[in-house]
Design a binder for these strands. Sequence first.
RNA 1: GGUGGGAUGCCUGAGCGGUUUAAAGGGCCGGUCUUGAAAACCGGUGUCCCGAUUGAUCGGGACCGUGAGUUCGAAUCUCACUCCCACCGCCA
Length: 423
Amino acid sequence: MLDIKFIRENKEAVKQNIANRQMSVDIDKLLDLDEQRRTLLTQIETLRAEQNKASEDISKEKHTEAKESKIKKTKEVKEKISSSEPLLADIEKEYEELLRQVPNMLQPGVPVGKNEAENVVLREVGDKLILDFKIRDYMEIAQIHDLIDTERGAKVSGSRFGYLKGAAAILEFSLFKFAMDFLTREGFVPVIPPVMIKSSAMAAMGYIDTEDDRQERYFFPEDDLYLVGTSEQSIGPMHADEIIGEKDLPCRYVSFSTCFRREAGSYGKDTKGILRTHQFDKLEMFSFCRPEDSVKEHKFFVSLEEKLMQQLELPYRVVQLCSADFARPSSSTIDIETWFPGENKYRETHSSSNCTDFQARRLNIRYKNKKTGKLEFVHMLNGTAFSQRPILAILENYQKKDGSVEIPEVLQKLCGFKKISRA
RNA sequence: GGUGGGAUGCCUGAGCGGUUUAAAGGGCCGGUCUUGAAAACCGGUGUCCCGAUUGAUCGGGACCGUGAGUUCGAAUCUCACUCCCACCGCCA
């Protein structure tokens, strides 16, 4: 959520920002509602001041008759207040609904574009394998070693579910353990969070503000609980309504969770395999930091992601997403796409966003600025350490002519084997 | 799931219709004293919203778990909900 004062003072910039993000929110209407709201609020508060004074006066009045007449008069003021209140409530409801839909301001330097085709590749790192045999995709390799079972996944749970088995299951634990250790050394606090969160928490994180948002989430109405799409949604609200000490910033977490997504808008996309499923595991980095540090922190996150990728020796490229291609809470998002030789394509495996104070404002997470002595909202960032997708990338990039798969060196010890080959 | 108790400021804790601008103690910050520290003493100690001057200011409103209600007036009374604690039941 943006600060309404900011919107009032930067009307044109906010409008341009919405246009750049290929969204539509009626800012003129929002400001009109804001105006109405403030006028009415002032009226009601003036009446309430009058009422408070009158009540005090009544408490001092000794004569019964005089008291009665004063009470009668005060009743009239009360009526006036209670007739205006529902109107204010209506205006506020509409106002808030609209305000919530305004996306975060873009960070300077974010390329303006109409769709993902206008994303900007910042750099490519690592050598793509040159293989002298017919390259298999990860599903073909999985079939050889019985690593992924989507047929039974469909039987038990429906489409876009799968079983990760055997060496692939071991590989997942090893991958996460490897990244967890690496990030713990960097000062991240390891967390295993709840994967079900209250609707208030989900709303504050900015992921159910529009109908499209809500369609993407799994929701249990009887319990008023949402399944998280990423543990970011569970870690952010952890410090809601708290004041974090400036000395404790940046406050960094590395969090493991299963993620649940309905994939509502992706019918027909990646239907084969488990690149896009309703349920997957992910290790996520999260940071609460001082506003002046968030740009630096964002770069730090990307640098950590790259270090992890380089240790796995997977070829990848770093992509700065253009204005139209990332979520409302983010001010800038940088993805890492890993090379999948079986598809002859880069595929998104990591995503890192600087959400500035957009989520902190609604979650009410602040810190005391020593210099100004004032309470200010923290900035919040999230980024992928690893998800399950890199496992698939390992299968494709480390495949051998005979169909076996070498294990990246850094994972060999953790896995307990160096190669996946036919038993 | 059942029964009982509870939720008040940074913390402990009093208040159970109008001298509450929320007692008292502790903590914290500032000051006096001191070579320095401690002790003692004095003063201060929230957040959010609206408006005016827009400087560190002033006026008004809201906030005692959350939401409704009763009343001229609610921390205080009524109802619902949430959470916490204890015991019982069940359980990885």
